[in-house]
Design a protein around this nucleic acid. Sequence first.
DNA 1: CGACGACTTGACGTGTTTCAAACGAGGTGG
DNA 2: CCACCTCGTTTGAAACACGTCAAGTCGTCG
Lengths: 236, 236
Amino acid sequence: MQVKTQAGFNRSKNRNYKRISNRGASVEKKRTRDQLSSILKRMGVSIIFPRDSKIYGEREPAKYIYNIISGAVRSYKLLDDGRRQINAFYVAGDVFGLETGARHRFSAEAIITSSVLVVKRSALTAVSAREIDVANELWTLTAHGLERVQNLMMTLGRKNAQERVASFLLEMAGRGSDKNTIELPMSRRDIADYLGLTVETVSRTFTQLENNAVIALPSSRRVVLRNHNALNLLNA
Amino acid sequence: MQVKTQAGFNRSKNRNYKRISNRGASVEKKRTRDQLSSILKRMGVSIIFPRDSKIYGEREPAKYIYNIISGAVRSYKLLDDGRRQINAFYVAGDVFGLETGARHRFSAEAIITSSVLVVKRSALTAVSAREIDVANELWTLTAHGLERVQNLMMTLGRKNAQERVASFLLEMAGRGSDKNTIELPMSRRDIADYLGLTVETVSRTFTQLENNAVIALPSSRRVVLRNHNALNLLNA
DNA sequence: CGACGACTTGACGTGTTTCAAACGAGGTGG
DNA sequence: CCACCTCGTTTGAAACACGTCAAGTCGTCG
């Protein structure tokens, strides 16, 4: 884990997190909006994580919060016998590793070489104890994580292979700048462990979608969406 | 939906929600601990929801927060073709319906006749805007919901039928007072839609576990855990 | 150019679903 | 008090989607 000592050259799109209304508070500074990412930029240290390197492990003390500058990260849990469930892929702009408990409940690894802003959690909670807006942003961040996982839950519990892959592709397309061409940083195995399938089934489903002219596969890691309608139908 | 106008006779065990430490805040009132449930009791109105009645629907404005006094509730999402995924069962003491966005992202129904404290969300957010401890409790509540769903995700993505049912039984046992005998308020269909299986598979798995002397089934809705060890092994 | 790992494809096996029927407990009416 | 209906549950048999095992292909990098 190489350390780049200078911090705060964050060049990625930082999504503006919605805030809940706080009517009822009388003397309230309304100026703030997305303070969090500026705090992260100010307090964070940028670190480079090489491909497949561990960022943190399940059950380890959750002392830091992470904000991706560039690259991609997978977060996962393992069963005793090695079965893996990936619960999220994070890309540039995403914040991860935020916990309310003392320890991380997942492991996190860089999928490709990634530049990540690392922020002391204690520093952040100190701010949020004073600034209600920051506290709300943290809450909203957790709530967004919850939303994502709840959607995944639907996928894992009730969708077939085609529908799962379609959901995945639409989710990935919703992140990149080009809504039609997706560059996948992760392997088929990662996708399989995200969607509750096997590598073989994922691969077969990709070629099936290609044969049906729903997608094109210029290369195995590049997907072109050719028929959004069909994908949306599959997404149910 | 019958209304019982008098509020605040909450007689159920209210779990004490863990709070994150807020070191760094200088002038801090440390007195509070689980203010939330007392606020709910104070501000809530008790309502009786009959069996199978709707409490709120997906996409409806999230104007209220709910705290179960007695009974049981299921929260779920539907796909267009009617496939259902239950994301949580709530029992006495549980809080549900808390959102950071404007609308509910799930539907909620009473599984059996249930008495529920209903609290205006605006009232609660007004308090949390002033009281950082309350804000933290709300955050922690969301975080606990996230934990639960993340565990379910593992179950749905990577476990077989026996393991899913074992997880379910252990989860349910962890709630009731008697850790060995479980009274199930929900049907086999509900369990199936929670575990991503069909009714038939759930039923078969129950009898299979009974034949292996892991559980006993005095009646279809009453389960006796006879071999915790075996269940824990299945739980992985 | 050769080797390694990721991906694809094929053939076969199996756990879960599907379709169908029987069972059983609870409630109603005669 | 019993016959009857209903609905949740169980059980059976057959179909199928996905998993498993195995062999190939492709791309990348030394």
